[in-house]
Design a protein around this nucleic acid. Structure first.
Length: 261
DNA sequence: AATGCCTGCAACCGCCCCGAA
DNA sequence: TTTCGGGGCGGTTGCAGGCAT
């Protein structure tokens, strides 16, 4: 048995929003707010739209300070950096990334990633992963990514230079190495395996998986993704949170209990 | 000039989570 | 404690415009 629809689909308008509808919705929200109920909002506002559609339209286009138009190189870099750090399997990752880009919405980031950045990112990083067996190219790549965080950069470079680092395998729950079928960037290994947050035997080699796990463990996703949506002042970046986690909790295995300080 | 393909984007769909009753 | 409904999210679709043939 399916879930009851949120509105009468036969009695609501669908498709692109007209300027008039935008004006009505914007005017109503600016004067009355959502009233805590998006489903009832279109009826109150006099719109023949689904409540969810109204919510989406407001959040993505009508909200104040929304930045429309193309993404800048800087924004692209931030998205790629965060992707490389937390991976796409992190819950709410579109929102997490959007929260780091003032004026951008998760839908925006998602579309931009799916249509442009994914190809670019994977193409660039596949070539990084296959270009050599040493650390030089990776070190350079990571230096670029983390140029704003010298502490993190040095830790990452150290980790990648570690003899424990194995780009040919990921690790399952029993720490059994699983061959990687094709070259993937090292930054993606921890989460693109889709298998585990349990780090490999080396503490250094697990830097990314631990960082991401700890971030998730201590609910920093909420902290970054939601709390800071309310205020963009003094927004610490996710990157800094990852670094904080590393510095605060070290490289302890995610299977052991680690209490926040 | 016409046609087909590709790309980017707005919007919808359906599932999951969480809080209220 | 359970049920229900709204909000939030990622995935997907459909369309319009640009480009190549």
């Amino acid at each position: 048995m399916g879930r009851a629809p949120c509105c009468d689909k036969s009695n609501v308008k669908r498709g692109p929003w007209s300027p008039d509808e935008d004006a009505i919705l914007k005017n109503y929200l600016e004067n009355h707010g959502t009233g805590g109920n998006w489903i009832a909002l279109p009826r109150k506002a006099g719109l023949r739209r689904c409540g969810k559609s109204c919510r989406l339209r407001w959040l993505n286009y009508l909200r104040p300070h929304i930045k429309l138009g193309g993404f800048t190189e800087e924004e692209d870099k931030i998205i790629c950096t965060l992707y490389g750090t937390i991976g796409s399997r992190q819950d709410n990752w579109w929102s997490l990334i959007a929260a780091q880009l003032p004026g951008r919405t998760d839908n925006d980031v998602k579309n931009h990633w799916n249509t442009k950045l994914k190809k670019k990112f994977l193409a660039e990083n596949t070539s990084v992963g296959t270009s050599n067996n040493g650390a030089t190219s990776n070190t350079s790549y990571i230096s670029d990514l983390f140029s704003t965080s010298t502490d993190l950069q040095s830790q990452v470079v150290e980790a990648f230079d570690s003899p424990w680092f194995d780009s040919n395998h990921v690790y399952d729950l029993e720490q059994t190495p699983i061959p990687v079928p094709f070259p993937i960037p090292r930054e993606l290994e921890a989460f693109d395996s889709g298998i585990s947050c349990i780090p490999p035997p080396s503490k250094e080699a697990s830097i990314f998986s631990n960082a991401a796990c700890l971030t998730k463990q201590h609910n920093h996703t909420q902290r970054v993704g939601y709390d800071h949506l309310e205020s963009h002042e003094d927004d610490p970046t996710l990157l800094q949170f990852v670094l904080e986690d590393l510095l605060n909790y070290g490289f302890a295995s995610s299977s052991s209990q680690v209490d926040p300080p």
